[in-house]
Simulated scan of single mutants.
Amino acid sequence: MSMPNIAAQTLQRQILSGTYKTGQMLPGQRDLAESLGISRASLREALSMLEALGFIRSMPGKGTLVTSGRSNPAAKAKATSAAPSSAELQSTFQLRYIFEPDAAALAARVINVHTTPRLWGVQARFEDALKTVDLVSASQADLAFHQLIAELSGNSGLLQISRDFETRISHSLRLPFADHSRIWEPAEEHRAIAAAISAGDADGARAAMQVHLLHTAARAGISFLQP
């Protein structure tokens, strides 16, 4: 696990435990980076993750505010200057809508008794993380679920696209978690996708993935032109 991810998990745990309470400002970045033993660049990346996940909000000229984890327009629009713009997010969701449904359909055509447990294993990791509101781990399992489907499609090009755009896809996956009251919705949609793939239902898998991507974009406050 990368240093930014480790730092994000540490800060997430401190927020959930009440070390940093809702409405409280986090320490300054220099002090926070020193306390975590990481560089300020790694800290900024960790803070970007947490803002996208709805735990904090950057307040220009003031610092970083711990939020309630409810719908956070600031996080949905753009977490930090390093985060993708709304136009980039629209492009990312549109790209995902073009290739991920077909990846799911292909995976359904070639799924077997050896690969099915891998799919449900990643889904179990996702749900286990959600149970403890470990959204850093949940977003990582979310990415793993989608990349595994690309792998299971048997098409190396689809898997390469997924990996090439991993940073942008990861951010698009985090944004819907900003509203902590809706964190189980993607898990339910994942189950529908996994069930269709496991049953060898290519059309059902494609449709379930399309629904999931449209709902994910909507939860993130993003709309895009469908092909």
Rank of each mutant, 00 (worst) to 15 (best):
G37K: 13
A33V: 02
P84Y: 07
G28Q: 05
F55A: 01
G61I: 03
R30Q: 13
T64R: 13
E45N: 05
G63L: 02
R57L: 11
G28M: 01
Y97K: 04
P60M: 13
E34M: 14
S48K: 11
A75S: 11
G69H: 01
A77E: 11
Q24V: 05
T22S: 15
Q24W: 04
T64P: 02
E51N: 00
P101W: 09
I38D: 12
T22Q: 14
S35M: 13
G54A: 04
L32I: 05
G69F: 03
G61H: 03
K21H: 11
T19L: 08
E88W: 05
L43Q: 10
K62N: 10
A52D: 14
F99S: 00
L65H: 04
A75N: 07
A103P: 01
R44A: 15
A82F: 02
S68R: 11
R44N: 15
I38K: 05
S86H: 06
K62A: 15
K76E: 07
S81Y: 03
K62C: 03
P84K: 08
E45S: 10
D31P: 04
Q29D: 08
N72L: 15
L95A: 11
I98Q: 15
I38C: 15
T80C: 04
A83I: 01
S71V: 09
K76T: 09
K76W: 10
T67Y: 00
M59V: 15
L50K: 06
R40C: 07
R40A: 10
R44W: 00
T67G: 08
M25N: 05
K78H: 14
L32H: 10
G63N: 06
R70L: 08
T80D: 04
S71A: 14
S68P: 00
L26Y: 01
P60C: 12
K78P: 01
R70C: 03
A83L: 08
G18M: 03
G23I: 02
M59I: 15
S71W: 03
A33H: 00
E51H: 07
R57D: 13
P101S: 11
T67D: 02
R57T: 13
K76H: 12
I98R: 13
L65I: 07
S48C: 12
K62V: 04
P101A: 04
D102P: 00
S58C: 07
E88S: 12
G37N: 10
T67P: 01
A52G: 12
I56R: 03
S86Q: 13
L32W: 11
L36Q: 02
E100S: 11
S48A: 10
G28H: 10
S91Y: 04
L53Y: 02
I98F: 13
R30W: 02
Q24H: 10
A41N: 07
